[in-house]
């Protein structure tokens, strides 16, 4: 039972990649949710600090907007992945059936049956083609959505760094403000790394 022979390829490999992408996205979504709560805390903290942390307050509002946008982006990534899993599963099933049909042998003198078998195969091939086209479209969409998310996260990084600077002007609240903005920065970095890994994913780099 050669386990080495079972290396996945084609749609099966795609499925494997998609599952990994999905795990990564789930991680990012969880982190993005944490950011939203942190942004809310930051807003309350800035309100209590009052005029001493006006700049920080403006930034924490921006961070809250950022986390909302991030969540939306993650939602569209999620539905793109879901659609891609559907397409790849159909591809796997169709190609299995097409493979089985292509093994049918019909004698040359059975014209009607032969043409029916070819028609059935052609229909399978057409469906396979349609799935491949849709999958290629999804791949492109995924790629650009991940790129958008990466840009958004870069912006989030700038906001987090500015918040760190503003925290220093927070007088009595400088300590807790620095802590909040530091956590922000850490999380944004985490998302940044995850997205970097996603951009390198085999499924997204495949030419199609």
């Amino acid at each position: 039972m050669g386990a080495a022979a079972a290396e996945p390829a084609g749609p099966a490999l795609d499925l494997l990649h998609i599952v990994r992408i999905n795990e990564e996205i789930k991680r990012v979504v969880a982190v993005a949710f944490r950011i939203n709560i942190m942004a809310l805390n930051a807003i309350f903290l800035a309100k209590r600090a009052g005029s001493a942390a006006r700049g920080f307050g403006v930034l924490s509002n921006e961070l809250r907007n950022f986390s909302g946008q991030l969540r939306e982006t993650m939602q569209s990534l999620d539905s793109l992945i879901h659609a891609a899993v559907g397409e790849v599963s159909s591809l796997l099933l169709e190609s299995r059936y097409a493979g089985i049909l292509s093994r049918v042998e019909v004698a040359a003198d059975r014209g009607r049956v032969r043409s029916r078998v070819s028609a059935a195969l052609a229909a399978r091939e057409a469906r396979l083609g349609a799935h491949r086209t849709r999958l290629a479209g999804l791949r492109r969409e995924l790629r650009s959505t991940i790129d958008d998310a990466a840009q958004l996260v870069d912006l989030g990084g700038v906001l987090a760094k500015s918040a760190k600077i503003e925290a220093a002007y927070g007088a009595a609240f400088a300590g807790p403000l620095a802590q909040v903005s530091g956590e922000f920065d850490g999380i944004v970095r985490e998302i940044h790394d995850s997205l970097g890994a996603l951009q390198k994913s085999g499924f997204l780099r495949t030419r199609s």
């Binding site: 089985i100 059975r110 078998v117």
Partner: peptide, 12 residues
């Protein structure tokens, strides 16, 4: 998995 074998035999 044995569809091709059965189908081909029947179709003959």
């Amino acid at each position: 998995e044995i569809f091709p074998a059965v189908f081909s035999a029947v179709a003959a």
